[in-house]
Simulated assay, not measured.
Amino acid sequence: MIQPGLRDALERWLAELAAVGGRSPRTVEAYGSNVAAFLAFLQTHDGDGAGTARIGRLTLQDMRSWMAHERARGLSARSLARALSAVKNFVAWMAEREGFDPSAVLMTRTPRFKNKLPRPLAEDAARAMIETVELQTSAGWTGLRDQAVLTLLYGCGLRISEALGLMGRDLPLGESLRIFGKGGKERIVPVLPVARRAVAAYAEACPFDLTPEAPAFRAMRGGGLGPRHIQKVMEQARAQLGLPATATPHAMRHSFATHLMNAGGDLRAIQELLGHASLSTTQAYTAVDTARLMEVYEASHPRAAAE
């Protein structure tokens, strides 16, 4: 059990994150779980319970003990890095209010881990995936629906939650679409004619009334379509096409960005289209096609051109 004072501090911190921190509900929930686990560790580590004053006395050895404990119970380096980030944020927040020095916590080194590079589909594989999902259902309108969703992922770079979050009021799609992504971040994405046609074909065939306040994409019984269905139809399609397990809905979004970059797209423009808060997130795509980057460098860099 976490001491009441720490529990209250944790709840106030989470409420502030949700209200003004710009974090998504899922991020706030994950931060809460990470810090609650850390505080529970302190209770056990100290033996006699830990109150709010204990946070101000945290040492580097305390942090190392907690991290060793987390790794021993199977937490990956990546997950531990996220947990440490949450703990640092919480401790810094408490330090501002309680007036202690949080240096020991903030100076704790983040575990090293290799960033997983996106695994995009080849252009012909992405097109084949979109074409194949339409043929996997006996009800014609559901095939059009699945095809429309995948076309939005690949043609507009939407997250699966963003595509399935579209409402009846968003239809028919225009030349651009206003999307509210992670943390409520707003962006405008252009909608290709092929995506507009795919969604329009689905909307015309859908047997349900697509009212403004209802989900645009419907399940068989009329409720909102869930992401698991799209994952399943892609699993079936990739089995037919002989594609690897990495051919997921999110891979369609990666493919959108990668293929744009390979065609000479500007990295910052792609960042805006994807809704990434940081350019470093988008820069993961630069490792996908080094040959293409070298071509751009050699063709445009003044020194390279002079040689």
Results as ranks from 00 to 15, higher is better:
residue 113 F to R: 06
residue 286 T to W: 05
residue 153 L to D: 01
residue 103 S to N: 05
residue 297 Y to I: 04
residue 126 A to C: 10
residue 199 V to F: 08
residue 300 S to T: 14
residue 23 R to C: 07
residue 44 T to G: 14
residue 153 L to G: 00
residue 119 R to F: 01
residue 241 L to I: 11
residue 2 I to C: 05
residue 304 A to D: 11
residue 171 L to N: 03
residue 110 T to P: 04
residue 137 T to N: 08
residue 56 G to H: 05
residue 200 A to N: 10
residue 99 G to V: 13
residue 188 I to Q: 11
residue 119 R to D: 13
residue 152 L to V: 05
residue 212 P to T: 10
residue 254 H to S: 05
residue 164 L to A: 02
residue 216 A to F: 01
residue 108 T to Y: 10
residue 281 T to D: 05
residue 48 D to S: 13
residue 105 V to G: 00
residue 168 G to V: 03
residue 111 P to T: 09
residue 92 A to P: 04
residue 120 P to I: 03
residue 139 A to Y: 09
residue 200 A to M: 08
residue 211 T to Y: 02
residue 118 P to V: 07
residue 180 F to M: 14
residue 129 M to I: 12
residue 32 G to T: 06
residue 191 V to W: 07
residue 120 P to A: 06
residue 83 A to M: 12
residue 81 A to D: 09
residue 278 S to E: 15
residue 257 A to W: 02
residue 3 Q to A: 15
residue 158 L to Q: 10
residue 210 L to D: 03
residue 142 T to G: 00
residue 116 K to E: 11
residue 235 E to I: 08
residue 66 W to I: 04
residue 140 G to Y: 11
residue 280 S to N: 13
residue 89 N to V: 01
residue 99 G to D: 13
residue 266 D to P: 06
residue 72 A to E: 13
residue 179 I to V: 15
residue 48 D to N: 12
residue 19 A to F: 09
residue 85 S to L: 11
residue 98 E to I: 01
